[in-house]
């Protein structure tokens, strides 16, 4: 059996009178891509953003690598360290994931600096490696993100997310703003990264086609709860709950 990388228990997020995520529990295993599907407002993004410490959950526990310590109870310095060394995030909106005031290379280097990289030439070498890995043209390294295409911006987010060899990568609707030809290359890139680097990923998407091609397992969310989970092909071909049947039957 594969190793459990992240285990979530009873994660709940309440905003005033709105309940965004209700008592969500699941495990993420070594090297797998776990899909999260559901309509807008079902709590998918709140879920991954909580795990990346962008949002503080109201209740719940999360454990990394079968350790005993609930990571939500760490102090802010320890959280920052986990975020910089063990996790990476790709947001739907590149403005959330990138700093548009600094260059593309600078954005990736920032993540390295936060993980205590200090030697300029080492950083430059690492940037070259990451740009090649994510199929970004090296001659655009010193350009500002605003001058790059949407697909390139998403790949810079990936390069940044991968900078410190994270154990977990969160992808929050990463292909929603991309046109089809760019999307196909992005999907292939994600799959290659999973296979070569054995990184575990949580992929949030409302696009069942994207989920079918990438995810091994899927969680279906509605009104903040997980209403169904299973192997991706099983969820798509033999959905059990009435909501998932509706979702799958609505697929193009």
């Amino acid at each position: 059996m594969r190793k459990c990388i992240l285990r979530i228990e009873g994660l709940t997020k309440i905003y005033g009178s709105t309940i965004a995520v209700v008592s969500v529990s699941f495990s993420l295993y070594q090297g797998e891509i776990l899909g999260v599907v559901g309509e807008s407002g079902s709590g998918k993004s709140t879920l991954v953003q909580s795990l990346y410490f962008d949002i503080t959950p109201t209740f719940g526990k999360a454990y990394l690598n079968e350790e005993k310590k609930n990571i939500f109870e760490l102090n802010s310095q320890e959280k920052r360290k986990l975020k910089n060394f063990d996790m990476g995030m790709v947001y739907q909106n590149p403005y959330l994931g990138l700093n548009f005031e600094i260059t593309a290379g600078g954005n990736v280097a920032e993540k390295l600096l936060m993980a205590d990289w200090r030697n300029y030439s080492h950083i430059r070498n690492r940037l070259t490696y990451l740009f090649e890995k994510t199929e970004l043209p090296l001659n655009r390294m010193d350009d500002f993100p605003s001058t790059l295409s949407g697909g390139m911006q998403q790949r810079i987010q990936i390069a940044k997310a991968l900078a410190n060899n994270p154990k977990i990568l969160f992808l929050d609707e990463p292909t929603s703003g991309l046109d089809l030809s760019v999307q196909a290359r992005f999907l292939d890139l994600v799959k290659k990264i999973q296979q070569e680097l054995r990184i575990s990923m949580i992929l949030v998407s409302h696009d069942l086609g994207v989920i079918r091609l990438l995810a091994d397992r899927v969680l279906v969310m509605k009104d903040g709860r997980i209403i169904e989970s299973g192997l991706t092909d099983q969820i798509l071909e033999d959905p059990q709950s009435s909501y998932t049947q509706l979702l799958v039957n609505s697929m193009l």
Binding site: S181, A184, R185, L187, D188, K191, R212, L213
Partner: peptide, 15 residues
């Protein structure tokens, strides 16, 4: 048949 678009057939089998 399902595969990621624009991946070569050799790569699909290799994977």
């Amino acid at each position: 048949f399902y595969a990621i678009p624009r991946v070569s057939c050799l790569d699909i089998v290799t994977q």
